[in-house]
Simulated scan of single mutants.
Amino acid sequence: MATLILVRHGRSTANTAGVLAGWTPGVHLDERGAAQAAGLPGRLADVSLAAVVSSPLERCAQTLRPLLDARRELEPRTDDRIGECHYGDWSGRKLRELADDPLMEVVQNHPSAAVFPGGESMRAMQARAVDAVREWNARVDAEHGEDAAYLMCSHGDIIKAIVADALGIHLDLFQRIHVEPCSVTAIRYTRTRPFLLRLGDTGDLGSLAPRGGGDRGADGAAVVGGGSGAP
C-alpha cells in the first residue's frame, strides 16, 4: 500500500504569538515559517510524489507553495478532514490563558474524553483524519500502484492523532508525540500493519538538544495545537 508523507505546516504567526489558531482565518506563516517552506522542495527532492493533499487552511497552502512551484506536474487537492481540530470557543485564545481551564487537564491526560466548547471532540478529530488517510491510501494505490508515495500537509494535533493510530496506541497517549513545524513524518501502510518510517524529521537534529521553557510546557505538558518549534 501507499507511503504517506505527512508535513506539518511551517511556523505560523499564531504559533509565535502562543495563540491556539484552530480554523481562525488569516493565520499565515511567519518569516521563519516561510523559510521552512522554501526548504521543503530540497528536502523532498529524492521522493517521487503521486499526489499532494492539503488542509484547506492558509498556512498549509503557503507551506506547499514552494514545493508545488518546483513540481508543476502535481495538482494539489484539499480535504477538510485533515484540517485543524475545531477548537470552538478556544480558537484564537492565548494558550497561557487556557492553561488553568479545567478542560486543559482533560486535554492533557484524557484527550479521548475532551470536547471543545462550541467545537468538536478529539475522538472525532482523530476519526475524520484517519478516515481521510484510509481513503487516500486506497485511491493512490488504485491510481498509482502500491509503491507510490503521496503527501499530506496538515496540523500538529492531526498528525499526532494519525501517528497514534498507525502505532496502535490509544488517543489518551497521543500527547507523548511531538512534531515540529514543517517537519516530515512518514508512514508506510501495508495490508497487515503500518510502519512509522520518520517522525517529526526536520532535517536538523539540533532540535533534539535540550531547551528551556518554550513548547515543552511546565511539568511535561503537551502544547495543544503543536507549538512553535525550536527557537
Rank of each mutant, 00 (worst) to 15 (best):
161 A>H: 12
8 R>M: 01
29 L>I: 02
153 C>P: 01
32 R>F: 05
15 N>C: 01
115 V>D: 07
116 F>C: 12
58 E>W: 03
159 I>N: 13
156 G>I: 12
16 T>A: 15
92 G>H: 06
211 R>Y: 12
110 H>F: 07
19 V>M: 06
85 C>G: 08
56 P>H: 06
191 R>H: 13
142 A>E: 14
176 R>D: 09
34 A>M: 07
81 R>Y: 07
75 E>S: 07
159 I>Q: 07
152 M>W: 03
89 D>T: 11
216 R>D: 12
60 C>M: 10
139 R>V: 00
37 A>T: 07
111 P>G: 09
93 R>C: 02
183 S>G: 06
181 P>C: 13
207 S>G: 04
74 L>M: 07
100 D>E: 15
214 G>C: 04
215 D>R: 00
208 L>C: 12
122 M>C: 12
186 A>H: 02
204 D>H: 13
46 D>W: 01
191 R>S: 13
157 D>I: 05
195 F>H: 13
101 D>N: 13
95 L>A: 02
119 G>S: 09
126 Q>Y: 05
114 A>H: 08
89 D>Q: 14
32 R>Y: 06
172 D>P: 10
186 A>M: 15
156 G>A: 08
162 I>R: 11
195 F>R: 12
104 M>I: 11
31 E>F: 00
49 L>E: 07
71 R>P: 04
45 A>H: 03
133 V>Q: 09
29 L>Q: 02
213 G>Q: 08
74 L>S: 08
205 L>C: 06
176 R>N: 14
84 E>P: 03
8 R>L: 00
165 D>I: 06
11 R>G: 00
124 A>I: 02
14 A>G: 03
35 A>S: 10
90 W>D: 10
32 R>E: 11
79 D>S: 08
9 H>I: 00
195 F>M: 13
14 A>W: 00
91 S>R: 06
120 E>T: 06
108 Q>T: 10
170 H>L: 06
17 A>K: 03
177 I>K: 04
215 D>G: 10
206 G>L: 12
194 P>F: 07
107 V>E: 10
94 K>F: 01
166 A>T: 09
153 C>L: 08
16 T>I: 07
141 D>C: 10
33 G>L: 05
